[in-house]
């Protein structure tokens, strides 16, 4: 049995691991089989993570966090959690390969999942012109016309990145102003390849085998128009990834996991949550990292108050049950 199992490998998960490992809690971190490192693995330049005056590549930052967590004894498993049993003093974590791990505490830091437009043809054309990852797929749109949907930082980052390849990038936004940071806005406004389509909502995606265009509706006057393009990048935000804990952990109305005040404590003793999965507002790499710190310290505090016999049983820690 473990003292701490961390589910998730973004800034929250890795930072929780760094703190827990340095506190000699020998954490086991379940990183996911194909999404280890989380959201930042799909980004390019990160310019607002403190300590990197010249910026750092997202994947590079996450590899460094992983290395730092491992340096202090974090054990990392590249697999997916398929089931969590959080009730009771001993928590059980089941993985895709069938292994079951037990722990006295669980730190849940699964981040969020991309939001979809909810259009009929979105799924069918996903991977055939509809994309959620500019850094993965932008390469295939050289000299093409494409559109990015969304008005936040990630939409601006994608649009700016995509101008490296595309001839023309439309930004389709349903409002007449952006919620993206000033720096990201300015960069997009000053880019000659980017054209903003304000007050427009994507209503249709056209194409048989590949995307050939989109239909947009004006949110003010309701007029419809068609735009010929070959790629549609969707960056309209993300929803907290909580399916593993439905029916176990209390959620807020916005879908995030409910925690006690400024702490990471969920409604179940010994279960802590951190990062984007509890944050409807800020969702930055550095706030997630801070949140991971809080969770590790809360877990450490909780463990310190447990009976000695129980703790002793966690010290032996066989690999699996």
């Amino acid at each position: 049995m473990r003292q701490v199992i961390i589910v998730g490998s973004g800034p929250a998960g890795y930072t929780a691991a760094i703190y827990a490992a340095r506190a000699n809690l020998h954490p086991l971190l379940i990183a996911s089989s194909v999404e280890a490192g989380g959201e930042l693995m799909k980004t390019t330049e990160v310019e607002n993570y403190p300590g990197f005056a010249d910026g750092i590549q997202g994947p590079e930052l996450m590899m460094a966090m992983q290395a730092q967590a491992e340096r202090f004894g974090t054990e990392i498993v590249l697999d997916d959690v398929t089931n969590l049993e959080l009730d009771g003093e001993v928590k059980r974590v089941t993985l895709g390969n069938g292994d079951v791990h037990e722990a006295l505490t669980v730190i849940f830091a699964t981040g969020s999942a991309y939001r979809k437009l909810g259009l009929a043809d979105e799924e069918r054309l996903s991977g055939h012109g509809v994309s959620w990852c500019a850094t993965c797929d932008g390469f295939f749109f050289r000299q093409k016309t494409i559109a990015v949907v969304g008005g936040g930082d990630s939409a601006m980052e994608e649009a700016t990145f995509l101008t490296r390849f595309a001839e023309k990038v439309y930004v389709v936004h349903r409002k007449d102003s952006l919620r993206a940071s000033k720096a990201m806005q300015d960069r997009a406004f000053n880019d000659p390849k980017i054209e903003f389509l304000w007050n427009k909502e994507v209503a249709h995606i056209y194409g048989d085998d590949l995307v050939t265009g989109i239909g947009v509706v004006d949110t003010v006057d309701g007029t419809e128009s068609t735009i010929d393009l070959s790629g549609l990048f969707i960056a309209i935000g993300a929803d907290p990834r909580t399916h593993l804990v439905h029916g176990q952990l209390d959620l807020n109305a916005d879908g995030t996991i409910a925690v006690d005040g400024r702490s990471s404590r969920t409604n179940i003793a010994g279960v802590f949550a951190a990062g984007d999965v509890i944050d409807p507002t800020y969702r930055q790499a550095v706030t997630a990292a801070g949140s991971g710190t809080v969770a590790a310290l809360d877990a450490e505090h909780y463990l310190a108050a447990l009976p000695k016999e129980l703790l002793a049983s966690a010290e032996s820690q066989p690999a699996t049950v």
């Binding site: 089989s33 194909v34 999404e35 280890a36 490192g37 693995m41 799909k42 994947p59 990852c133 850094t135 993965c136 390469f139």
Partner: peptide, 9 residues
């Protein structure tokens, strides 16, 4: 491709 994180994963 080399630059594709999900490909490496």
């Amino acid at each position: 491709a080399e630059w594709c994180g999900p490909c490496r994963a």
